[in-house]
Write a protein that binds this DNA or RNA. Structure first.
Lengths: 136, 136
DNA sequence: GGCGTATAGTTACTTAGGTAACTAATTATG
DNA sequence: CATAATTAGTTACCTAAGTAACTATACGCC
């Protein structure tokens, strides 16, 4: 039973990101790029470490994703006193893509949540948070 | 709220596989290799398509993982009438590693499940299965 | 102030997962 | 029976995520 749980969980994660990637392909993004853009929209500017901590993803992964977004002109450098850090923010184009992608993600998630019981979702979130806490 | 749910979910998956990989490193496996070996133990022999369908992972991914396990001598070729297919099974060494890894995985999952409410887990599995079904 | 430590990022290398396009073998069909 | 369609697997190339080891800058402290 325990194994079944984690198995189900891993399969769902893969299917979910796969489908989300398919949806986001319309606006030329991958799901991890979307998460990063979403974060930048909310916090305006950030360092790579900020993003790494927030998304709970290692720094080298963030470096790569940021590089790709910068090459595509969605991200800009923001001056900073601390010369170690690389502070970034969205460009105009980045803001536009945020808007487009936002619609896509919203409708995707709504279609998935449609008809789900509120209490089931809340309970599931609680369980997952608890398990995540136990991992550390 | 919806976004929070998926966000939590993705983070948990990453943390989970990360920790599972750490545990399995003791016996020299990655979590995806473990899933494949587990499947082969249960079904004795299988084609790559069988595995692909069961794990819900694309064929090229299976090809790579199988190649690695074969190079390490954990998997052997099994003769087949259909000359298109590559039928495989565990070697002696593969069986040994299965045993060692099995203990590691079991104790890891038990430590994670310890103290969890049975009803919460059941409810969570149901929710995840439902969401996965809606993805298709 | 200088030196040791901590922090921010990067580089190189690993596995994992995906798509697209391909080969080879089998099955279906006209 | 010959040809078309399907199936099994592979190859090439993409992003994602991880670890280990590294550089460069900033900070703490004696």
């Amino acid at each position: 039973m325990e194994r079944s749980f984690f198995h189900q969980h891993l399969q769902f994660s893969r299917s979910f990101t796969k489908k989300l990637n398919e949806q986001l392909a319309e606006v030329g993004l991958y799901h991890s790029q979307w998460l990063l853009i979403y974060y930048l929209k909310e916090f305006e500017t950030a360092t790579l470490v900020d993003i790494s901590n927030y998304l709970d993803v290692e720094k080298p992964t963030i470096t790569r994703t940021v590089n790709r977004l910068e090459e595509r002109g969605l991200i800009r450098k923001v001056p900073s006193k601390d010369r170690r850090e690389r502070r970034i923010g969205l460009t105009e184009k980045g803001n536009e893509v945020y808007g487009e992608a936002g619609k896509v993600v919203k409708s995707f998630e709504q279609s998935l949540m449609e008809g789900m019981q509120e209490t089931e979702i809340v309970s599931t979130i609680r369980t997952i948070q608890l398990l995540k806490k136990k991992l550390n």
